[in-house]
Design a protein around this nucleic acid. Structure first.
Lengths: 127, 127
DNA sequence: CTGTATCCGATATGATACTG
DNA sequence: CAGTATCATATCGGATACAG
């Protein structure tokens, strides 16, 4: 038994599939990924074209790739309506909402650190 | 309400430097990065060579790169002793410890999701 | 010991074109 | 509309050699 249960993550990062933390981290890393989650969370369900339009210069290929991975991880849902033309809608799933909380946690740290750095830069410039 | 206390980050991920969350996420993503943090946190301060030895096949180039970025972000500290031969020791900094908490949060989610998936796979196989 | 300098192959992203 | 296919390019990681 290799445990797990101990939140004691694993020393990972180079053995994909073995470390849950690493798997999630890798999923989030690529460009655009957190942006997709952000949009679905703040604007609600969106269709492929709407997402693409809001993201500016992302290519269909990359956007599709991100959506597929997020869907596979059950962070978002994909709903296909076989109308003509077809309509595909993406929305946050339960896990996406859970992840949102921790991402907010990191974000709060990041924002604070940045402001601390700026404050320090200013005080030094004043010397 | 879209609220979130307005730490309402930014819709980012493609504009480096503009979004604090994205900056941190990008820092953590690369292979080895979380591994370095993990080692320093569980084993205490370590020297360059010790880190390299524990990480197996990482190259000096990549390890140096990771350490430089972590140091720049103030997640770890670098102590240089001008002895002969020189000795450089890396250790967790205050921000690294703060980050550790949220990483544990993600890890707990990741571990739970994985076990949920495994449980589902088993029940389906039983049908 | 602790890196830096290079070359190289793998991967990933963007732009473009095309299909159901 | 919602992708898929392909190609060119950029970046990244790995291995090796070498320097302070």
């Amino acid at each position: 038994m290799k445990d797990t249960s101990k939140t004691d993550t694993c020393p990972t990062s180079h053995t994909p599939g073995q470390c849950p933390l690493d798997t999630v981290l890798r999923l989030l890393m690529g460009p655009w990924t957190t942006y997709v989650l952000w949009l679905l969370q703040t604007e609600g369900p969106l269709r492929f074209g709407q997402l693409k339009a809001r993201m500016g210069r992302i290519s269909s290929k990359v956007l599709t790739d991100r959506l597929r991975h997020l869907e596979a991880a059950q962070l978002i849902t994909r709903t296909y309506a076989p109308t003509i033309p077809p309509a595909v809608t993406y929305a946050m799933a339960a896990r996406g909402a859970e992840l949102k909380d921790v991402l907010d946690g990191i974000n709060q740290l990041a924002v604070r650190w940045q402001s601390e750095d700026e404050a320090r830069a200013l005080s030094q410039a004043a010397e």
